[in-house]
């Protein structure tokens, strides 16, 4: 009997083989057409849509017993969503190791952040995506946005960015800022802060995106051109709070603002817990 059969009657990594094959075929097409949204038959998972079912199904279709899995939620390894997804895979994928260290991981499933530690070849990022259609807020009809992608007609988004600049003096999106992939497809980077957008450009790691409720997946192969949408006279500027991490002293990482009391006290800490912990340990040594 294969090792995969030993887990309480569930297949290795929860999904049945037919579903995995369907997702695997979609993933290969997604890699072949970078940034293009590919429909897939999203399954009901043991947690509700909106909790990362797209990312979980992508991870379940690629993961093997030799992998090391890291799961982060807003940069943190120890938040509810990250802990429960990591525990889920530890239960349904016998042999799989989990980690909180970015450098050790072969697969990193993420909700809304890219780790501060630079990724390397051989790593796979799996993004949980709530809304895969970057044009959704401008054009809710799926049939219409499909045609716009087919024609590479992204004027709507350019007008939106222009209006942001006209009204606010700068581009208004601090997260989920749309990107052009390979100079062809407009893509939602998922709600990562715009601070993380530049990390997608020419990343050595393979990046896969899964949207469970919307039943779409897409991909950015390694070393692919990913440009945040902007204008020549208003270049894209990644946003970052102007502060210093209160724990590790970093000035170059993405920060969360924490309220510390009811008298207006607040401080900044790194959103990436692994990177911050590593920096603190280095400073202590």
């Amino acid at each position: 009997m294969s090792a995969a059969m030993q887990n309480e009657g569930y297949n290795f990594a929860y999904l049945d083989e037919g579903t995995k094959r369907m997702i695997r075929r979609a993933l290969l097409k997604a890699v072949a057409v970078p940034g293009c949204q590919i429909p897939f038959g999203s399954r009901e998972m043991p947690l509700p849509y909106g909790w990362g079912t797209g990312g979980i199904q992508v991870t379940a279709s690629i993961v093997g017993p030799e992998d090391v899995l890291k799961v982060i939620d807003q940069g943190a390894d120890d938040t509810t969503n990250a802990v429960s997804i990591r525990r889920f895979f530890a239960r349904v994928a016998p042999g799989l190791r989990t980690t909180e260290r970015t450098v050790e991981a072969s697969i990193i499933q993420t909700r809304h952040r890219i780790p501060e530690t630079p990724l390397r070849e051989g790593q796979v990022m799996v993004y949980q995506v709530p809304q895969p259609e970057p044009l959704y807020k401008l054009e809710p009809r799926r049939a219409e946005t499909k045609r716009l992608h087919a024609l590479a007609d992204y004027g709507l988004m350019q007008v939106k960015l222009y209006e942001d600049i006209a009204r606010h003096g700068r581009v208004g999106s601090s997260y989920d800022h749309p990107v052009m992939v390979g100079g062809r497809y407009l893509m939602a980077p998922s709600p990562i802060p715009s601070f993380d957008n530049p990390k997608m450009h020419m990343s050595p790691a393979l990046q896969l995106f899964g949207a469970g409720r919307e039943r779409r997946l897409y991909a950015v192969p390694p070393y692919t051109d990913v440009r945040s949408l902007d204008f020549e006279d208003h270049p894209f500027v990644p946003l970052r709070a102007n502060g210093t991490c209160a724990l590790c002293g970093a000035r170059d990482t993405y920060l969360d603002e924490m309220v510390t009391d009811d008298r207006g006290g607040r401080l900044f800490v790194c959103s990436d817990t692994d990177h911050c912990g590593t920096k603190q340990a280095e400073a202590a040594a």
């Binding site: 294969s2 990594a13 890699v31 690629i62 393979l206």
Partner: peptide, 15 residues
């Protein structure tokens, strides 16, 4: 092993 051998082959194809 239809499950794990297919997984390992898929990762090779994906890579």
């Amino acid at each position: 092993d239809p499950v794990l051998d297919a997984q390992s082959a898929f990762r090779a194809v994906l890579e």
